[in-house]
């Protein structure tokens, strides 16, 4: 391990903080000078996870969302944590097109996008305790 760095940002679950979370992560990851494509992948994944925390986790009520970002050489690990309602059936939630809120015109593709744009996605959740989404991506442009 040659290079390590980490940050953590917490904010209120307002929808306007989604953009903030994206820039914070993008600004932090930019210190590795990735490609635009890599940054855009990461921003998309962060958006999806943070949107889920706002809409599903806290059901648009106020709550705190914490996004951490850990860099180890050219691997970026991003963790999005909420203390909201939690997910009862994680496997089902991760299925493409599954959404528990079809009335909101959600596409059910959030987890699928995270999986597409990142190398690994782990989800931990407990009903009424909250949800942790951990995503990892290796920046291949740096190899």
């Amino acid at each position: 391990m040659q290079y390590q760095n980490s940050m953590k940002v917490s904010f209120v679950s307002k929808s306007q903080n989604e953009a903030f979370a994206r820039v914070a992560v993008a600004a932090f990851v930019s210190q590795l000078d990735p490609t635009l494509e890599e940054i855009s992948d990461i921003k998309t994944a962060v958006s999806e996870a943070v949107t889920n925390a706002v809409i599903h986790g806290y059901e648009n009520q106020e709550g705190i969302i914490t996004v951490s970002c850990d860099i180890s050489d050219n691997v970026v690990e991003i963790t999005v944590v909420d203390e909201g309602v939690g997910i009862e059936d994680i496997e089902q939630a991760r299925e493409p097109l599954y959404t528990s809120k079809p009335e909101l015109e959600r596409s059910g593709m959030g987890f699928t996008m995270m999986e597409t744009f990142m190398d690994e996605v782990e989800v931990e959740s407990e009903k009424d305790k909250g949800t942790i989404v951990r995503m990892r991506k290796k920046l291949r442009s740096l190899e």
């Binding site: 930019s30 000078d33 990735p34 490609t35 635009l36 494509e37 890599e38 940054i39 855009s40 992948d41 699928t112 996008m113 597409t116 744009f117 442009s141």
Partner: peptide, 21 residues
């Protein structure tokens, strides 16, 4: 979705530093 991904951007290997600069 790979299609979507390709469609969504054509910026390939451009480095963030250059673009932002």
């Amino acid at each position: 979705l790979g299609e979507i991904k390709r469609f969504m951007r054509d910026d390939g290997m451009i480095k963030v530093s250059r673009s932002l600069k």
